[in-house]
């Protein structure tokens, strides 16, 4: 019961704070749109010959990029907020109070993550139509995308736990989360690991974003059924990847928590 109450508390607070910082959220949507427009411009620039095949190919690339970009937006929320929020709360002087909740800090952060997902869903709900309008692509999104996205987010929040744990010890992890976001953008959201072989392909597949993006692309762009993706092993890869990242994330966070409490630096900034 306490766990659910804490999850609700964090979600509720996240929503209130997002409402109070509406301008920041709106500006963030504008920035995201600009970045996507830039990426689209680059993609179109690489196919300057306007043959019918090239135009069709460009539309395909746009859809491909749009899906990667949207899932990456969720990843950005997960990675950026988990680490940064810990730092921000330490600066604000509210973090130690959170640590004294009726449940473990892992659950408090899970609540934070849940609140974050709710906000990111609202955010993406606004961003996606804007991006569809700009890119001119047509997307039909089947319901099966949502559970797949949920599992992908589990892995991403596992990565978020790692950054939150690092923030407990090292306080400023802004650059680390920035680096992770870039890696996820270029090696997870936009690449096609099936085409990129070798080390890059392997690295890309090992990221928490890639298996989810692959499955979602198959569902949306190829019209594949979830059942068929289970048989190809894509869903299994996604589940294993997400579970592994979550397990590692929790283990790293618990270790960092113990070290921080031993050092007496929880809440210190």
């Amino acid at each position: 019961m306490n766990v659910l109450t804490v999850l609700w508390a964090e979600t509720y607070k996240e929503l209130i704070e997002s409402r109070r910082y509406t301008l920041n959220l709106a500006l963030s949507i504008i920035v995201q749109t600009i970045i996507f427009m830039g990426i689209l411009f680059l993609a179109v620039s690489f196919s300057p010959i306007r043959t019918p095949e090239a135009v069709a190919r460009t539309a395909e690339v746009k859809s491909f990029l749009l899906i990667g970009y949207i899932v990456w937006t969720f990843a950005m929320f997960a990675v950026n907020n988990m680490g940064q929020d810990v730092t921000t709360e330490m600066v604000l002087g509210t973090f130690e109070q959170k640590y004294m909740a009726s449940v473990s800090p892992v659950v408090v952060l899970a609540g934070r993550a849940l609140g974050n997902v709710v906000v990111s869903v609202i955010y993406t709900g606004v961003l996606l139509p804007v991006l569809i309008l700009i890119s001119g692509v047509r997307l039909s999104i089947p319901w099966t995308v949502f559970p797949v996205l949920g599992v992908t987010l589990v892995g991403l929040y596992g990565l978020g736990y790692i950054l939150a744990g690092m923030a407990l010890l090292f306080k400023r992890v802004g650059q680390a989360s920035y680096a992770v976001q870039l890696v996820l953008l270029f090696f997870g959201g936009f690449t096609n690991p099936g085409e990129a072989g070798g080390v890059v392909g392997g690295f890309s597949r090992a990221l928490p974003l890639t298996p989810g993006v692959e499955v979602i692309r198959s569902l949306v762009l190829d019209g594949a059924r979830l059942g068929s993706l289970v048989s190809t092993g894509a869903v299994t890869r996604l589940l294993v990847n997400a579970a592994a990242y979550l397990a590692v994330g929790l283990a790293v966070f618990c270790l960092c928590d113990r070290v921080a409490r031993r050092r007496g630096c929880i809440g210190k900034y």
Binding site: K13, I16, E17, R20, Y21, L92, G93, T94, E96, Q97, G267
Partner: peptide, 9 residues
């Protein structure tokens, strides 16, 4: 030395 509460709330 802490705020202990959220100022925006």
């Amino acid at each position: 030395g802490n705020r202990n509460v959220y100022w925006r709330l």
